[in-house]
C-alpha cells in the first residue's frame, strides 16, 4: 500500500477571494473523476517552489468529484509555501497533489456547533455545505475573522444559524455563551489558529471529549519532546537531539543533509531508514509497515534513549 498516491492535476481556475486568500480549482487534465473525499478531508499539494503543504478541501466532496478546490492564505512571514502558491500558480499550472486524506471527519450528530477562525473556515465550509445540502437544520456556525474584507465566503454565511464576527470591529467574540451548557446532542467542530483551539479546548473542559473535534494539520502525537541520541549509520556519528530540536534540525546542525519540505509530518520528504531503536511516529504519511523501517525526521522522535538511522535510500516514495 502506498503511503500517499499522487495525482498530477491542472489548475482550472484561480481567483482572489480576499486580499490575502486565493482559491484554486484543481482538475484532472483529461477530465477524469478524482478520488473520493468527504467533508474535513485535505490534500497535500507540492508548490511550484517544491514545498509540500496541506490544504483542506472546501467543498463537500463525494464519491466521484470532478475537482478539488483549496483556498490558500498568503503568509508573508511563512516558510514560502503559500507565497509560491500565490506567485507561481496560475490557471493552467500543473501541480502534484496527493489523494485526499481525512483526519477531521464529520460524524453523525443531532446538532452541530462549528467554530471557524480565519482560513480555518475551509474544512468547516465543506461540512456546513454538506449538512445544509441535506436539508439539515441544527448546524450553527461561528465564523471569526478580522474584518469583512478578510472573510472568505462571507456572502455564503448570512443565515439565521450563522454568526460572522469581525474582531477589528468588535474585538474577540466571547465564546462562553455558546459553550457554557454542555450538550451531548451537539458536536463541536473547531478549526483555526492555535489560540482559538486553546480557548475552545479550555471552554469545553466540562463537555464529553467525544463531542469536541479539533482540526490540527500537524500529525497527532503525544506532543512530548524528549532528548535522545541518534546514531547516523553511514559514519557511526552520535547526534544529540535535545528536547527543543527536531531530529531533522539536530541532524542538520551536525552537518548531515536531509531533504525536507513540509516539516509537519505530512509529506514524507525527510523520511529516513530506521535501523534500530524505538520511535514514536508522529507523521501522517507512513503506513504501519513502513513505520517498522522508517522514521519521518521532522516530527517523530525516539522513545528509546538511542536510535540508529540512515538515508532512506532507493525505495523512497516522496514526490521528487
Amino acid at each position: 500500500m502506498r503511503s500517499l498516491s499522487v495525482l498530477r492535476l491542472r489548475v482550472s481556475e484561480s481567483a482572489d477571494l480576499t486580499p490575502t486568500v486565493r482559491r484554486f480549482v484543481l482538475r484532472d487534465p483529461a477530465g477524469l473523476a478524482l478520488p473520493a473525499y468527504e467533508p474535513g478531508a485535505h490534500v497535500v499539494v507540492t508548490t511550484p517552489a517544491g514545498h509540500k503543504r496541506s490544504y483542506s478541501l472546501v467543498d463537500p466532496g463525494g464519491a466521484r468529484p470532478r475537482e478539488y478546490t483549496v483556498c490558500v492564505r498568503r503568509e508573508n512571514d511563512g516558510r514560502g509555501g503559500s507565497t509560491s502558491m500565490h506567485d507561481d500558480v496560475t490557471t493552467g499550472t500543473e501541480l502534484l497533489v496527493s489523494a485526499p486524506v481525512n483526519r477531521f471527519p464529520l460524524l453523525p450528530s443531532p446538532e452541530y456547533l462549528f467554530i471557524a477562525g480565519g482560513i480555518g473556515i475551509t474544512p468547516i465550509r465543506a461540512m456546513v455545505h454538506r449538512l445544509r445540502a441535506e436539508g439539515r437544520t441544527g448546524a450553527r456556525l461561528l465564523y471569526l475573522t478580522q474584518s469583512a474584507e478578510e472573510t472568505p465566503f462571507l456572502q455564503e454565511f448570512d443565515g439565521p444559524q450563522d454568526t460572522v464576527h469581525h474582531s477589528d470591529d468588535r474585538g474577540l467574540l466571547d465564546l462562553w455563551p455558546y459553550l457554557a451548557e454542555p450538550d451531548d446532542d451537539v458536536r463541536v467542530y473547531c478549526c483555526g489558529p492555535a489560540p482559538l483551539l486553546r480557548a475552545v479546548r479550555a471552554m469545553t473542559a466540562h463537555w464529553r471529549v467525544s463531542r469536541v473535534h479539533m482540526e490540527q494539520f500537524a500529525a497527532a502525537g503525544s506532543g512530548f519532546s524528549l532528548p535522545f541520541t541518534a546514531i547516523w549509520a553511514p559514519d557511526g556519528r552520535r547526534v544529540e537531539v535535545p528536547a527543543h530540536l527536531s531530529l531533522l534540525a539536530a541532524l542538520r546542525r551536525d552537518g548531515i543533509a536531509v531533504e525536507s519540505s513540509c516539516e509537519a509530518g505530512v509529506c514524507g520528504t525527510c523520511r529516513l531508514a530506521l535501523l534500530g531503536g524505538e520511535v514514536e511516529h508522529r507523521d501522517s504519511v507512513l503506513t504501519g509497515s513502513e513505520r517498522l523501517s522508517g522514521v519521518v525526521a521532522c516530527v517523530s522522535r525516539a522513545t528509546s534513549p538511542e536510535i540508529v538511522i540512515g538515508p532512506h535510500g532507493p525505495s523512497r516514495r516522496d514526490f521528487s
Binding site: R201, A205, G223, F224, P227
Partner: peptide, 20 residues
Amino acid sequence: TEVAPGTGLRDLPVVTLIQR
C-alpha cells in the same frame, strides 16, 4: 505528572525525563 495543571493536556513526559 505528565498532565499540565490547569489545562488537562498531557504535554510533558515527566516520568521518562526523570528516568533518562
